[in-house]
């Protein structure tokens, strides 16, 4: 539940659900997000759910912070509401030249490539949020022994389709972009499609992702 609402500048509400990152807290964030989307409050410009925060930006020409805060505080959510739970399979190739940071991962995690792959593929990942760049999913959680910091110097260009890991999360670079996550492989699958205006993102908060390993040959034959 929302623990505290404060202002982020003069045109946004910062709704804090706590410090921890877990599915329970994140489910509440998503439920509030869903509820606010249903209500279609005219003065709201954007609602951004993340692990444990919800940021609501509004049109300062139409409403002020305190009035919108009062309105949001009155909103009740159905705690028992179940979230949409799609299960999606994402194929990844972890061979050269797609696995850009395998040497680094072996060194930092003190695990062999085989062990890293076994740990990585043998899991279901929960989508906590999407964003940063269009359609990028933030997926968790990686096992304790798979957690590693961001690159000391971020790449200027991470190739499109790259799967990165850092700390307890994995993500997918939907576009070529700057970024500092450790790149384990690459997917040929289209994760963001801007020709589909109603549903451009393949993976949405609340969904479950299963990664499957494919060879370089399967990657190049992928349609």
């Amino acid at each position: 539940m929302i623990k505290n609402i404060s202002n982020l500048g003069d045109a946004a509400l910062y709704c804090d659900f706590g410090q921890d990152i877990n599915r329970e807290i994140n489910s509440y964030v998503i439920k509030y997000f869903n509820k606010l989307q249903q209500l279609k409050i005219d003065c709201i410009n954007n609602i951004t759910p993340s692990y444990n925060k919800l940021i609501i930006s509004f049109d300062l020409k139409k409403i002020k912070y305190n009035d919108l805060k009062n309105l949001i505080e009155k909103i009740q959510i159905d705690k028992d509401e179940t979230l949409n739970k799609k299960i999606l399979e994402i194929p990844i190739c972890c061979e050269e030249p797609y696995s850009l940071d395998f040497y680094r991962l072996e060194e930092k995690l003190k695990l062999s490539k085989e062990q890293i792959l076994k740990n990585f593929f043998n899991k279901k990942y929960f989508c906590y949020m999407t964003g940063f760049i269009a359609g990028m999913p933030f997926l968790g959680d990686l096992d304790e022994n798979m957690r590693v910091q961001r690159l000391e110097t971020p790449r200027v260009k991470v190739p499109k389709g790259s799967i990165g890991i850092t700390e307890q999360f994995a993500n997918i670079y939907t576009f070529e972009s700057p970024g500092g996550w450790n790149i384990i492989g690459n997917t040929p699958m289209k994760v963001f499609d801007n020709s589909k205006e109603d549903k451009p993102n393949l993976i949405n908060p609340g969904d479950t992702v299963i990664f499957t390993e494919i060879s370089k040959k399967e990657y190049s034959n992928y349609e």
């Binding site: 709201i44 949020m129 964003g131």
Partner: peptide, 11 residues
């Protein structure tokens, strides 16, 4: 464009 931040699409 508004109401798309949650998809990663800026204003």
């Amino acid at each position: 464009r508004s109401n798309l931040y949650h998809l990663g699409i800026p204003f």
